[in-house]
Simulated assay, not measured.
Amino acid sequence: MKKILNVGDNDVSKQYIPYIAILIGVLSVSTAAVLVKLAGDVPSAVTANYRLLFASLLLLPYVWFKKRDELKRLAGREWVLTIIAGISLAIHFIVWFESFQYTSVASSVVIVTLQPIFAFLGTYFFFHEKFSAGTIISMLIAIFGSIIIAWGDFQIANEALYGDFLAFLGAIFITIYFLLGQGVRTKISVMSYTFIAYGIGAIVIIFYNLLMDYSLVGYQPNQWIIFIALAIVPTILGLNLLNWSLKWVSTSVISMGILFEPIGASILAFFILDEWITWSQWLGGMIVIFGLLLFIASTRRTRRMKITIDHS
């Protein structure tokens, strides 16, 4: 009797493991923005370069020994889509990381979190997904919240509004990355797909840095530690935990969990970077998150595409 009870207790406790993984995953991806700012005077594109480069190198042994056959099965069209997806990911990181030079962590992360709306718009045009009244209302609420943030930042400085615009571009390009990868990820695992996309993205940003005459060497030891931390904590640990959780919980749960990334990032920015949150960021951020929660609730039954969280 005692043995049966213990087994039942273990089964119950295992049910919480995916949610613990989601919590750790969200906390991990929340560190990305703060780590980028801690890199100091390093050009944003260089920071983005090493994040993708080190992440792809860390994935290389696993993909090489475990997933080589998947890569061999990819057709030419799928390679083209993955390459374009990697280019989109590179642009996303360049403009998003650059946004931190002009606006706050809170504003940038909240605005880039609008990505699910762009993803749904993409599925509407490419996959003929239907709009419901609740979807339209929730999108308008989220967009209204972002307008409040942008207006408040504009009152502070024109350059803050420019940073918000860069974050907005970041949300668009990460959406393109997801849409292009949708078909490819039915053929190969997440690990293989991200390995290719990260590698392509790193190569693209290397050429961008050479074009802009940004040095890829000569940085301080603490800055190299930040590059490695970006590859490990928000990229490998955070994203893999969230993707692993998809086996046990619905995409809606993951999407709702990731909406708390702006909160985690803002708290970290307050304590580590001494960034205070303005009233417009508080109000606009809460409205955006509320709108996105409604959006996810209204679309979870009809969406065909899994909205993942590789932006962080």
Rank of each mutant, 00 (worst) to 15 (best):
I17N: 12
W64D: 06
K66E: 09
V34I: 12
K72I: 14
I17H: 12
P61E: 03
L59E: 01
I22L: 06
K37F: 08
W64C: 10
E78T: 08
R77W: 06
N10R: 14
I24T: 13
N49R: 08
V36L: 06
V46M: 01
L71T: 05
E70S: 12
I20K: 13
A48R: 01
P18V: 04
L71Y: 02
F54L: 05
S30P: 05
S30E: 03
L27W: 06
L53D: 00
V29H: 01
I22F: 02
V42T: 04
L27G: 15
F54G: 00
L60I: 08
Y50Q: 07
A75C: 14
A48Q: 03
K67F: 04
G25F: 01
I22N: 00
L23A: 12
L52K: 02
V42S: 02
V63L: 02
V42L: 02
I20S: 14
D69M: 13
L71R: 05
R51L: 06
R51A: 04
T47V: 11
S30Q: 03
L23H: 06
V42C: 03
S28A: 15
V63T: 04
I20W: 09
D9I: 14
D11R: 15
T47E: 05
L60A: 15
Y16P: 12
D9V: 14
K66A: 12
E78G: 09
I22P: 00
V42Y: 00
L35S: 11
D69K: 15
D41I: 07
Y62K: 08
R51C: 06
E70I: 08
A55G: 12
G25R: 00
K14A: 14
L58M: 12
K37Q: 15
A75P: 12
A33Y: 01
A75F: 10
P18H: 04
I24P: 10
N49I: 07
L71E: 03
P61F: 01
Y16H: 13
L52C: 08
F65K: 15
K37Y: 09
Q15G: 15
R68Q: 12
S13P: 10
V63R: 00
Y16K: 14
G76Y: 07
L58Y: 01
L52F: 03
L57Q: 06
L60S: 13
K37S: 14
A75L: 14
L53E: 00
Y62I: 09
L74Q: 12
L74I: 11
V29S: 02
R51P: 07
I17T: 11
G76S: 14
V63C: 03
V34H: 02
Y19S: 11
F65L: 13
S13E: 13
F54Q: 00
P18D: 04
S30L: 02
A39K: 02
V42F: 00
P61R: 04
K66P: 10
Q15A: 12
Y62L: 11
R73P: 13
A33N: 03
L58W: 01
V29E: 02
K72R: 15
A45N: 07
I20C: 15
L74K: 10
